[in-house]
Write a protein that binds this DNA or RNA. Structure first.
Lengths: 96, 96
DNA sequence: TCTTGAATTTAGATTATTATAATAATATAA
DNA sequence: TTATATTATTATAATAATCTAAATTCAAGA
């Protein structure tokens, strides 16, 4: 592996990996990997409180990981970055 | 993506991802991905203090991520789990 | 034995993250 | 307007991770 390349990227990649390093947040990302979902659906699927689900989603959106679409009084979140989806799929292939 | 499968694994995988979510620790793993290295070599390569490098290596070894081989008064660390190497390579392919 | 280099351990302060509860905002429908 | 459902915000307590410095272990060589 090319260490030089990683030295440039390691902060960005590690920052991204932070979102993968919490069980329910990882689940959220997996859950979103096949398309956008509402906050309510997400919080029920992953078993986090509504509040914490909202907080996590908001933070991930603020950091460019997720996209949000508001319609009526629903918020639909989805994965912004194709690279993230790719990595999730790799992870699943390797560990599941 | 199969959420059920991930629900079983998410704690283990997230636990592993924790080690990827710190810039220098990620670098350590990348550095080790082509074979074992001494603590000294690692700490110089990634720019952490010798003490902290040792602490990180020890923790990753304790959690089954790394293997250690002692020879004279040197310790050589390497990646224990093939899945980790695979994921590192995927990550590199996607982000570098 | 004394010293040196390599690595580890310990302890403490600092900082970051997570969980929880309470409250607020917003849109819709009755 | 009132009620309800959905989402967001804020504050705080609890927990975990990181960094730093100092002390310790261990093996080898002078």
């Amino acid at each position: 592996m090319d260490l030089k390349l990683m030295q440039n990227k390691c902060h960005a990649v590690a920052g991204l990996m932070k979102h993968f390093s919490h069980p329910q947040r990882l689940l959220i990302l997996c859950f979103l990997s096949d398309g956008e979902k509402s906050v309510n659906l997400i919080h029920e699927a992953v078993g986090l409180s509504q509040s914490q689900t909202s907080q996590f989603l908001r933070r991930m959106q603020a950091e460019g990981l997720l996209r949000v679409r508001r319609e009526k009084n629903f918020s639909y979140y989805s994965i912004e970055n194709e690279a993230v989806t790719k990595l999730l799929k790799s992870m699943q292939r390797i560990f599941c």
